[in-house]
Design a protein around this nucleic acid. Structure first.
Length: 199
DNA sequence: AGCACGATTAACT
DNA sequence: GTTAATCGTGCTC
């Protein structure tokens, strides 16, 4: 299937976070290197500077600048002194919003993913926001990358939508000092596996 | 220049 | 259930 276009990321952020479930996160391969791919199974929405859980709550800064830019770009940030997290920028330029990718289910390039996550069982290759960036070798050098550029090494492929029957929602993870109501809003989306085959 | 803290993970008890 | 690891960021002095 084809690469998601800018229109997809221009949807309202909550729609985008929901619609990304089942889409395919891809790191492009080459003649000699197989490509890596995983089905997106968990996301979180961070919805403008008014969302007090969003990095943009403090206004535009060097760190969060990409979120204020046009949709369809990668916002990659460093956290806890050691981890990288991948987001997709949503909403029109001038509005700071993004979807955090929290988990993918590996479907291609398993050997590379295992190598990038040596010492971990297959079930834990990419079932967390910082695990998937390790598995896909995503770091700050990719911050600002245009996912809709046909040349970009990281992109998202379209795939059939996931049924509501398999989608769960709940509060976002790790918002320790965030005030209500933001802390409890059900802005986390994930796919519930019928046989526990997911995440 | 110094400080508190974080959209996490892994390894504990 | 708890906690160390580890450092960029944004704020205050």
């Amino acid at each position: 299937m084809s690469r998601l276009n800018r229109g997809f990321f221009s949807q309202p952020t909550l729609n985008c976070a929901r619609a990304l479930l089942g889409k395919v996160l891809v790191r492009a391969g080459s003649d000699s290197v197989p490509r890596i791919a995983g089905l997106i199974v968990e996301t979180e929405a961070y919805v403008t500077h008014e969302d007090l859980a969003c990095h943009a709550r403090v206004g535009r800064t060097r760190r969060n600048a990409v979120m204020w830019g046009p949709p369809g770009h990668a916002y990659v940030y460093f956290i806890y002194g050691m981890h990288w997290c991948l987001n997709f920028v949503t909403e029109a330029e001038g509005t700071a919003a993004a979807v955090l990718i929290r988990g993918v289910f590996p479907v291609e390039g398993l050997e590379i993913l295992r190598d990038n996550r040596r010492g971990h069982p297959d079930a834990e290759l990419a079932n967390g926001p910082a695990k998937l960036t390790q598995a896909f070798k995503i770091d700050g050098s990719l911050n600002g990358l245009d996912l809709c550029d046909p040349e970009s090494p990281i992109f998202v492929e379209d795939a059939p939508p996931i049924s509501d029957l398999m989608v769960r929602t709940g509060p976002r993870i790790g918002l320790n000092r965030v005030p209500e109501p933001w802390k409890s809003l059900p802005w986390r989306f994930w796919v519930e596996g019928e046989q526990g085959n997911w995440e």
